[in-house]
């Protein structure tokens, strides 16, 4: 799979993402500056984490207006794959490619710690190497990860099987104690209606090497590489 990573000023997890993609796919992803307008024939576009435009105004708001986003929209519209992690997820919602919005964490504090994500479905291009209902560890590192959408939208997402991951205990239970940022219905990641655009807050890319504390995130990149 040919992958590219979009670089906005202030993005800072592009190296982590490149390592994870190359580790599973064997190919270095293309790095794409936000002022470019052409994505070429990429199969997967990744918007990594960070603080695009300093998170000023709202997280992701200014990046969503960047020149490259027209190309990302066209890429998604033709059914190609998009992955947005953390700030990337925020940008995808601001750009209207995914519904809802990410608000300040309910604690009003930045949260940097491991969390467990429950896999809500294991049959999308991103999750075939996981089992449905299993949990995996990912790194949370955000100040604005509190997923919000109105009830009708949440009902629709659930009804259409578009919830990708939920915050859970290690054994897969959903509870407010492990939904640290206060997300609606414990949602940590969602898909577009064709299941080809995935946005998620925690970082699978920071757990792809045993030396860094585990490889819980590697199946996600293995699945993408194999698609």
């Amino acid at each position: 799979m040919k992958a590219g990573i979009i670089l906005f000023p202030g993005i800072n997890r592009e190296r982590d993402m490149a390592i994870a993609l190359e580790n599973s796919g064997g190919v270095k992803p293309r790095m794409i500056w936000h002022k470019e307008t052409d994505l070429g024939d990429l199969d997967l576009v990744v918007i990594p984490g960070g603080f695009s435009f300093g998170d000023y105004l709202r997280c992701g708001a200014m990046a969503a207006q960047s020149p490259i986003m027209a190309a990302v929209r066209a890429h998604a519209a033709r059914g190609a794959y998009v992955l947005g992690v953390c700030n990337g997820f925020q940008i995808l919602t601001e750009a209207g490619l995914l519904p809802g919005a990410l608000l300040r964490n309910a604690s009003l504090r930045f949260l940097s710690m491991d969390c467990h994500l429950r896999v809500e479905r294991a049959n999308t291009v991103f999750t075939t190497r996981y089992q449905q209902g299993q949990t995996f560890r990912a790194v949370m590192a955000h100040g604005d990860g509190n997923y919000f959408a109105d009830d009708a939208t949440l009902d629709r997402l659930e009804g259409e099987g578009r919830v990708a991951f939920r915050y859970a205990t290690a054994t897969g239970e959903i509870s407010p104690e492990v939904n640290l940022n206060g997300s609606a219905r414990s949602i940590a990641g969602i898909y577009s209606d064709n299941l080809r655009v995935l946005g998620m807050m925690p970082h699978p890319e920071d757990l792809v090497d045993p030396l860094m504390g585990g490889i819980d995130g590697k199946p996600l990149f293995d699945a993408i590489a194999a698609a």
Binding site: G49, F110, A141, D206, D209, L211, M212, G213
Partner: peptide, 16 residues
């Protein structure tokens, strides 16, 4: 305190 500091960005933190 640590939980408010991003200790993993860069993907190379071996001991947090």
């Amino acid at each position: 305190i640590w939980d408010q500091y991003d200790s993993t960005v860069g993907g190379q933190t071996t001991k947090r």
